[in-house]
Design a binder for these strands. Structure first.
Length: 135
DNA sequence: GCCAACGTTGGC
DNA sequence: GCCAACGTTGGC
């Protein structure tokens, strides 16, 4: 089991829309490191869903439904996956909160904020869930 | 292969 | 709206 974090701008594709859709093709990623992360995803992996630009918080957990397949727009080079909503967090976890948390200082989101798909350790994943229990 | 110029992302 | 960080491009 691996853990990941994906970013989405809520004015482009928000968690609420994702929940309505029940499934989302995660394509359009045009960064090699992010692509490698997409390719490393396994079915059933859990993925934190982060709202960038607006909100700046982790709002839910998604699950990998379909593993890396060719991005329809650029099948030779790029990769897409399919995600389904798994759980909405009880309380969103803000970037500020994560930045203030020493255990999360190595998190991909904080170290390299521009990376759209990053890997998380199990500890980091669990810590974010823990923070989402608090108000 | 280096590096300057430029574009994009995303937090503030 | 600004700017730092990062990736890409292209001239040399």
């Amino acid at each position: 089991m691996n853990y990941w974090l994906v970013k989405s701008e809520p004015n482009v594709y928000a968690w609420e829309q994702f929940q309505t859709d029940k499934v989302a093709v995660w394509d359009g990623v045009r960064n090699y490191l992010a692509r490698n992360n997409l390719r490393a995803m396994q079915k059933g992996d859990l993925v934190l869903f982060y709202h960038s630009n607006i909100g700046l918080e982790v709002v839910g957990i998604a699950k990998v439904k379909k593993t890396g397949f060719p991005d329809p727009a650029s099948p030779d080079q790029w990769t897409a996956v399919e995600l389904v909503p798994y759980k909405k967090l009880k309380h969103p976890v803000s970037l500020k909160k994560m930045k203030n948390c020493p255990e999360l200082s190595n998190m991909g989101l904080i170290r390299q904020s521009r990376l759209s798909v990053s890997a998380l350790t199990e500890d980091e994943f669990n810590k974010v869930l823990l923070l989402s229990q608090e108000n």
